[in-house]
Design a protein around this nucleic acid. Structure first.
Lengths: 191, 191
DNA sequence: AAGTAATCTAATCACCGTTTAGATTACTAC
DNA sequence: GTAGTAATCTAAACGGTGATTAGATTACTT
């Protein structure tokens, strides 16, 4: 019946909390995430997380940020091996849809708990900058470039959301059908 | 100091609860909605709502359903006065974006608490059926028709989400700029 | 008018987000 | 090393929340 000595210094609690939160969100969804459960999973008292995150919202915002940059990196990697701009654009789209269907809860989190500080320069924003860099290869200028980038992003983002939550959500766990639909849909994008 | 007689039969509590919930969601967002506050706003005890909705999720799902059909109706009305298929499509898009920016919380609710029963026939699904009916005028067949409808929906839905929550959310309260962007973006849709 | 179903209240439970005071550990400068 | 300070965590508490239960009241049916 020996009590464990309280662990007053965890070492890297902030990251442990983020990791635990990601785990729980992916398993149970955003709605069921509780600070106390995150603390439990990290093996720490209920009040401990509040030394690293001001409140639950701050935790979720941090999570959204992490996820956004993860998706940014996945998209970047995806386009690397491709030769033509079209191929790069398609690769990004595929990576995007794949992330959305593989991690639906995190994907939703990214856009419902986005941080309030919008980068003044759009080309600093995660995901946007990747898409914009590829769209720029299509030789557009100024406003037209922004519109084209947003069009590409809107199309693939909308598809992702609709496949996860829309009337086609029964396809969510049939990757090959989703990809086939993605190809057919993105064929309607004119650059 | 007379106590009011308990109102054992409210009359139409279910609808009153839905109305109160819509009000609260639009004012404070989805996250801050509580069953007890809905009950309070409807002037009823904390347990009363559970006779009309199995749990909080069921309330939110019902709310999502209501909002979906509201949007469906708005879209239908919007296309009525238009002469060409292109004009009808554009009118639906405008109505869609307008609803999203006017009622962002409800708009998000529609797609995060969508009911689990996917209509076996897609043409029974709210919003989809409206879009599909217009896209059908473009003379496409079978799979191509579905893909085209999803492309149109994806584009406008993605734009709505990105304007509300994405890197362009500072535009959310500048309708004219949003509409301008919407036009520029939807111009990239090829049917 | 009696009996049954529907509707709401009151009370209760476990859980949650958050705050506070205090204990423990690490860090820094002499 | 050791004193002092900052950082980190615990323990305990507060009000609020989702949900369940038993029972009171009202409406409905025949």
């Amino acid at each position: 019946m020996s009590r464990l000595k309280p662990n007053y210094h965890h070492g890297d609690l902030r990251n442990s909390l983020l990791k635990a939160a990601i785990d729980l969100v992916e398993r149970n969804g955003i709605a069921k995430l509780s600070m106390r459960e995150v603390a439990r999973q990290a093996g720490v008292s209920p009040g401990a997380p509040y030394h690293h995150f001001k409140n639950k919202d701050a935790l979720l915002t941090a999570l959204a940020e992490v996820s956004l940059w993860t998706l940014d990196e996945l998209s970047t990697q995806a386009k690397e091996g491709c030769k033509t701009p079209q191929a790069r654009l398609e690769a990004i789209g595929v990576a995007y849809i794949r992330y959305a269907t593989d991690h639906p809860a995190l994907f939703q989190l990214m856009f419902s708990y986005a941080r309030d500080d919008v980068p003044s320069d759009l080309s600093d924003a995660p995901v946007y900058r990747v898409l914009a860099s590829v769209v720029r290869e299509f030789d557009l200028t100024g406003e037209a470039h922004i519109a084209a980038t947003m069009a590409a992003w809107s199309l693939v983002h909308g598809l992702a959301v609709l496949v996860i939550d829309g009337p086609l959500r029964h396809l969510a766990h049939q990757p090959e059908q989703v990809m086939q639909l993605a190809k057919a849909v993105t064929a309607h994008l004119r650059l």
